[in-house]
């Protein structure tokens, strides 16, 4: 069977600082993520997983290596082309909700469609309402962040990422600020985006409870991708596949 690779990182390295202060965040990392799968990038704090997400998503230039995203060599594009690429294909969910405090849930999502695609206010509202309905937020559309719970705010942030129907979704610790019942809902939504909408979802997380939802788990330590046959225990995912889960070095 032909495997459709949506996102490929080849020998990616990235360091911060200089001389004695230099920290290596990524050290010769290569990985491939298939289209329509939910991949989990795990590892302890400072392991370089957020840096890898930034490099793979076109937000941070690697020192070396290349990223091929939907067939585009991402870091050979100029900034405007990369911006255009992100606009067309990428959705992002960051730690914290980063919602405009003055705008309602609906406006946060509408804004992306209106400003990103130049959609009319009517069209933007229709699309925002569609996504909010999908996220079970229709009745909360008129509320501002201060009136929403943490889980609801994260759902709005997900709506903002998904309203463009992106082919790539990048999420950085999307469940870290939520209790597990809300975290589970969030992961379910992202899994649905991958399996139902065919988006490629890459999630950075250190929450082991997210593993059963993943199609693929990558483990990063000290900027290096760990081989999956290293000391690990197996976890059964929702499709009944066994996924390796490294417990420690």
């Amino acid at each position: 069977m032909r495997v459709d690779i949506a996102l490929r990182g080849e020998r990616l390295s990235r360091s911060f600082g200089q001389g004695a202060m230099q920290t290596i965040a990524l050290d010769d990392v290569s990985l491939s993520i298939e289209a329509g799968e939910l991949a989990l990038l795990m590892g302890p704090s400072g392991s370089g997983k957020s840096t890898l997400l930034a490099v793979l998503s076109g937000l941070l230039r690697p020192d070396s290596g290349r990223v091929v995203s939907l067939g585009n060599d991402l870091w050979t594009l100029n900034e405007t082309e990369r911006e255009q690429f992100r606009l067309q294909y990428c959705g992002f969910i960051f730690q914290g909700y980063n919602l405009f405090s003055a705008l309602t849930a609906r406006q946060q999502i509408e804004m992306v469609v209106r400003w990103g695609e130049g959609a009319s206010p009517r069209e933007a509202r229709r699309r925002a309402d569609e996504v909010l309905s999908l996220l079970g937020m229709s009745r909360r559309a008129h509320l501002r962040p201060v009136e929403l719970s943490g889980g609801e705010k994260q759902r709005v942030a997900i709506g903002r990422a998904l309203v463009k129907n992106p082919r790539l979704v990048f999420a950085d610790e999307p469940t870290s600020a939520l209790d597990w019942s809300h975290g589970e809902q969030v992961i379910e939504l992202l899994r649905a985006a991958a399996h139902d909408r065919g988006a490629t979802v890459l999630i950075v997380s250190h929450d082991s409870r997210t593993i059963p939802f993943a199609d693929h788990v990558y483990h990063l330590e000290d900027g290096r991708l760990q081989h999956q046959d290293e000391s690990s225990v197996a976890v059964l995912n929702h499709q009944g596949q066994l996924l390796p889960y490294p417990t420690s070095r």
Binding site: R86, Q88, C90, F94, N98, V112, W115, G116
Partner: peptide
Amino acid sequence: ASLREFAVLRALGIPRWR
């Protein structure tokens, strides 16, 4: 005070002029 929110929009590819 809204730099992080603007940064999300930039990540989503919304041009700076908006």
